[in-house]
Nucleic acid binder design. Structure first.
Length: 292
DNA sequence: AAAAGTAGCAACCGCAATTTG
DNA sequence: GCAAATTGCGGTTGCTACTTT
């Protein structure tokens, strides 16, 4: 037995919403709150599918939406997030307060794609257009979007690189990352367990590190948003994304080698800053991404 | 001025994930 | 544990406004 449709299509309006419909929906949600989209249309006196109501509210009527043009900063943030997440519009939207996934998706398709092409970059791979074909097979280049691991949030991504596993610890940019503390980024606000996930980063200065056998996890969490108790009870792969950010903040990603049982001759420490400036290495990194 | 082409965006559709009974 | 119901997401469509010929 197949599933029944989410709502009765025969007696629902389609197409553009009228002002009256908008007002009914706004009034209803103001007094009853969001949720229960299936029953909402009937309760609100709307001849619409519940999905349609939800979409209209989320993409257009929500009071916290920021209408208007995207700023240059937003553009760059979208590009950077897309380079790591691919078409995960809802995740990208989660880092852009006041913007919806649909809005960002449309904006991407109509503006940013073209912008990247003008820059000579492939909008999908974010690599130089003439280099895309030759680099996509390089084992050393890993692609978050093509990671085999299935993920629904940024909190847990496993990647492989030449049969080795990597761990990525991501943290918000505190604008003082290049302070020689590649392994910690410690600040007063920094949750110790987020920023010092032993033994991953704590070992990166160990010159006896031998192989690049790494675990990878990733979280785009501005650490200001995490309480110490949260961080104390969760490892980096379990951190929840805070979607209710009040402002756009840059994020900083750290990729670092985790030494395996067999020591490696040189640890890898690749740090780059996901901010509005071009990526930068931390002071502990040499330009080839190896730890000094 | 009219037709054709293009761009932008709201809305829809189908599917997957999650929740509920 | 299972099936149905609900919710959420990403891709696509179609309408409208604007530009070009």
């Amino acid at each position: 037995m197949g599933r029944s449709p989410c709502c009765e299509k025969a007696h629902t309006n389609k197409g553009a919403w009228t002002k009256e419909e908008d007002q009914r929906l706004i009034n209803y949600i103001r007094s009853h709150g969001e949720g229960c989209w299936r029953s909402l249309p009937k309760s609100a006196g709307l001849l619409r599918c519940g999905k349609s109501c939800r979409l209209r509210w989320i993409n257009y009527l929500r009071p916290d939406l920021k209408r208007g043009n995207f700023t240059e900063q937003e553009d760059e943030l979208i590009i950077k997030l897309h380079s790591m997440l691919g078409n995960k519009w809802s995740l990208i939207a989660g880092r852009l307060p006041g913007r919806t996934d649909n809005e960002i998706k449309n904006y991407w398709n109509t503006h940013i794609k073209r912008k990247l092409i003008v820059r000579g970059l492939d909008p999908q791979t974010h690599r130089p257009l003439n280099a895309t074909a030759s680099t996509t097979t390089a084992n050393s280049k890993f692609d978050f979007r093509n990671a085999s691991h299935s993920y629904s949030t940024l909190t847990d991504i496993d990647l492989t690189m030449n049969q080795n596993t990597f761990k990525v610890i991501a943290m918000a940019d505190d604008s003082s990352f290049d302070d020689g503390k590649c392994n910690s980024g410690t600040t007063e606000e920094a949750p110790p367990q987020l920023l010092q996930p032993p033994p991953l980063l704590a070992h990166h200065s160990d010159q006896n590190c031998q192989s690049i056998n790494l675990d990878l996890s990733i979280g785009l969490v501005p650490f200001q948003s995490l309480t110490r108790s949260e961080s104390a009870n969760s490892n980096s792969a379990e951190i929840e994304l805070k979607k209710e950010q009040e402002e756009v903040v840059p994020y900083q990603f750290v990729v670092a080698a985790r030494p395996s049982e067999t020591p490696a001759p040189q640890a890898v420490c690749v740090c780059w800053q996901l901010s509005f400036q071009r990526g930068q290495l931390c002071s502990n990194c040499s330009t080839n991404g190896l730890y000094r």
